[in-house]
């Protein structure tokens, strides 16, 4: 790990996170509606509401409230959800892994399908496989993930019922003991292979629905970057020096084209975290995005701030990872770091 390169990025991410926390803290509180009243329901008395407001420092000035929040945060406490009536950290620990697992599997599908599709398109540019590939990519992009969700459910859950359309596991499958919260990993750790199969089976449709737009973007991006690289002198030189076309497509033109692609892929992954909400809704997936929307509707202050912060953190971590990855595969950046 190159700390000279990574540390400034981590620092910048932390500053961004502090900014985001202030912003979301203020926004959550200026939204219309009294959170205490919403939490307690219409039948609660004024006294009960007032007690709750006092308990949660809701009548204090905004900076005072923020200070209380920071003090709690330093103890690892994100407050309590008014909706689930549990610590927000407990909720996040439960819901976040489900989303991360979904997004991660989607990213894998996106990369494994999108990159070769784009590379093939570029290799056959202007010919039939290219036209087909671009059509698929365009369809992927212009159809929202939740529509894909519904289509996939209809086709593979209803007409050809080969995939489950809801939840993370069958009723009959025991939930694996929580280690990472990723069912794919936890089932393997508990040595239950059939549960692993079941978890994977449940993941395929929602992950595909979430991945399709990204596949389209990845393919288009890879295609255009590859075509740009194909016009470079070093690719003509590779042909002139007898490199086989297949080696050029999969290696000598692919690597330089992949570097700019990777940067955008990082953004695409981050967008998936947001898109995950609709897919989670369609597939009854107990993830953090769905939780986030529920708590916003209920004006569940601590839960909103906690969820937004955790998603923002995931986003920022993803960005740092991409930067580090780019610096690893781009020799120019890597070597200039070593010198400094």
């Amino acid at each position: 790990m190159n700390w000279k390169f990574t540390l400034p990025r981590i620092g910048a991410a932390l500053i961004a996170l502090i900014g985001i926390s202030m912003l979301i803290f203020a926004i959550a509180r200026v939204m219309p509606g009294d959170p205490a009243r919403i939490a307690l329901g219409p039948n609660a008395t004024e006294e009960q509401v007032a007690t709750l407001r006092a308990e949660r420092h809701l009548d204090a000035a905004l900076p005072v409230q923020y200070w209380e929040f920071v003090k709690a945060l330093s103890r690892g406490d994100l407050g309590r959800s008014l909706y689930t009536n549990r610590p927000v950290t407990t909720d996040i620990a439960q819901f976040l892994p489900a989303t991360l697992e979904l997004v991660l599997v989607s990213v894998i599908i996106m990369v494994v399908v999108g990159l070769p599709l784009g590379a093939l398109s570029a290799h056959f540019r202007g010919r039939f496989p290219d036209h087909l590939g671009r059509l698929i990519a365009l369809l992927g992009i212009c159809t929202p993930a939740f529509v894909w969700g519904v289509i996939l459910q209809l086709v593979f859950g209803y007409f050809y019922p080969i995939f489950p359309i809801e939840g993370r596991l069958l009723e009959s499958t025991p939930v694996p003991p929580t280690v990472t919260g990723f069912y794919l990993i936890d089932t393997l750790l508990s040595g239950n292979l059939s549960a692993f199969g079941d978890a994977l089976h449940h993941l395929i449709l929602p992950a595909t629905a979430l991945a399709l737009a990204g596949i389209g973007q990845t393919a288009r991006l890879t295609r255009s970057n590859m075509i740009e690289v194909y016009a470079k002198p070093y690719v003509e030189m590779a042909s002139a020096y007898g490199f086989r076309p297949w080696r050029i497509a999969t290696r000598y033109a692919f690597r330089p084209a992949f570097i700019p692609t990777l940067t955008i892929l990082g953004l695409e992954c981050a967008a998936m975290l947001g898109n995950a909400f609709l897919v989670e809704k369609v597939f009854g997936w107990p993830g953090i995005s769905r939780y986030g929307v529920e708590v916003i509707i209920r004006k569940d202050l601590d839960a909103i701030v906690g969820t937004v912060l955790i998603i923002a953190a995931a986003f920022l971590i993803m960005n740092i990872l991409v930067d580090v990855l780019v610096s690893i595969i781009n020799p120019r950046i890597r070597l200039s770091q070593r010198k400094s």
Partner: peptide, 13 residues
């Protein structure tokens, strides 16, 4: 074949 500009004729990655 030998090209005009050797540096751009070699793959940078």
């Amino acid at each position: 074949m030998i090209f005009q500009d050797p540096t751009s004729a070699l793959n940078p990655t």
